[in-house]
Simulated scan of single mutants.
Amino acid sequence: MQRRHLIQWGAAALATSSLGAQAQSFPAKPIKLVIAFPAGGPTDITMRVLADNASKILGQPVVVENKPGAGGTLPAQALQGTSADGYTLAQIPLGVFRLPYTTKINWDPVKDISYVLNVTGYAFGVVVPADSPLKTWTHFVAWAKANPGKLSYGSTGTMTSPHLTMELAAQKLGMELLHVPYKGSADLMQAILGGQLMAAADSTGFAPQVEAGKLRVLNTWGAERLAKFPDAPTLKELGLDLVQNSPFGIGAPKGTPPAVVKRLHDAFKQAMEQENYRTALARYDMVPIYMSSATYQKFAADTFEREKALVEKLGLAKPQ
């Protein structure tokens, strides 16, 4: 009996020692960070600054790989079946928590991801071409009600926060809109500037086009007006009890050793705190939104339940 206990103790000590050594030597090679949206958009630009900062702290390159499509959920899906060694990370947009309600998957967004930390969120709004007859949100709503299903708007993908928030607003106001999904902000901006859409719902990657006089902001979706667009009312000011900033962060494969998760957390938290990252975010009216690994894990569980209610309310849930 005593010998068996000694063997068990020895095995446990060896495992602990191995994990400690793994964390101390981590990372020993480049880390891949998979981003949910295309190159050139607000997410890509800001995450590349964060990755570069983290590279310097970790002593190994953090290489960004873009994997757009499927409403921003492909990076999280790519974690499934990937080695749980900390060398593959993924951006986790809010759309990940809607997946089981809209499509058939064999993994759980809460249980099957190791949540490292949350880093930021978006500032969203609705824009129209500068020469559009829809001068205000009031005009937008009136035209949509008079022409059911004809007012076209684009978003960065089906089941993304811009899409669902617009559909929720439409439901509350009795509008029927025509939704056109795109893979990211760059494609969406090309479409609206090219006259293919009447409106776009997006993060404020549209700011340069607004500042150039090509687009007009009808509303923004934060709790308060944006300093960059002080004349654009919030949805709350327009009578809709809606605030959307869609926080997102970084996840690793399920089973990633806690010591490795902590090493990644500490490095990316330090990377978040650097001035160049804050400056990059500010270009798109974004701010750091830090959540620790434990807080982010709880946020994932809470959001999973909340998004289920939203998807069901909009009648978009897939029949089980």
Score class of each variant (00 low, 15 high):
Ser246Val: 05
Leu235Ala: 09
Gln244Asn: 14
Lys228Asn: 11
Leu218Cys: 09
Leu242Ala: 00
Gln244His: 02
Arg216Met: 08
Gly213Ala: 11
Lys236Gly: 10
Arg216Asn: 15
Trp221Tyr: 09
Gly213Asp: 12
Ala227Glu: 14
Gly213Ser: 12
Glu237Arg: 00
Phe248Ser: 01
Thr234Lys: 03
Gly222Asn: 05
Gly251Gln: 02
Ala252His: 04
Lys254Asn: 08
Val217Ser: 11
Thr220Trp: 02
Lys214Arg: 15
Pro208Ile: 10
Gly222Lys: 06
Ala227Ser: 14
Ala212Met: 10
Ala232Gln: 08
Arg225Glu: 05
Phe206Glu: 08
Lys228Leu: 14
Trp221Glu: 10
Pro258Glu: 09
Gln244Lys: 08
Gly249Leu: 07
Glu224His: 10
Leu240Tyr: 01
Ser246His: 04
Gly255Cys: 05
Ala252Ile: 04
Gly239Asn: 07
Thr234Ser: 07
Lys228Ala: 15
Ile250His: 02
Lys214His: 13
Gln244Gly: 00
Phe248Lys: 00
Phe229Gly: 04
Pro208Val: 08
Pro253Ile: 09
Asn219Gln: 10
Pro257His: 01
Thr220Val: 15
Asp231Val: 10
Thr204Ala: 07
Thr234Glu: 09
Gln209Ala: 15
Lys236Val: 13
Pro253Thr: 09
Gly249His: 06
Thr220Ile: 14
Arg225Leu: 04
Pro247Met: 06
Gly205Tyr: 13
Val217Gln: 09
Lys254Arg: 14
Val210Thr: 12
Gly222Cys: 04
Gly255Arg: 06
Asn219Pro: 00
Ala212Arg: 13
Ala252Tyr: 06
Pro257Gln: 03
Glu237Lys: 01
Gly251Pro: 01
Lys214Met: 12
Pro233Tyr: 07
Leu215Tyr: 09
Arg225Ile: 05
Leu226Gly: 05
Gly249Ile: 10
Asn219Lys: 00
Lys254Gln: 14
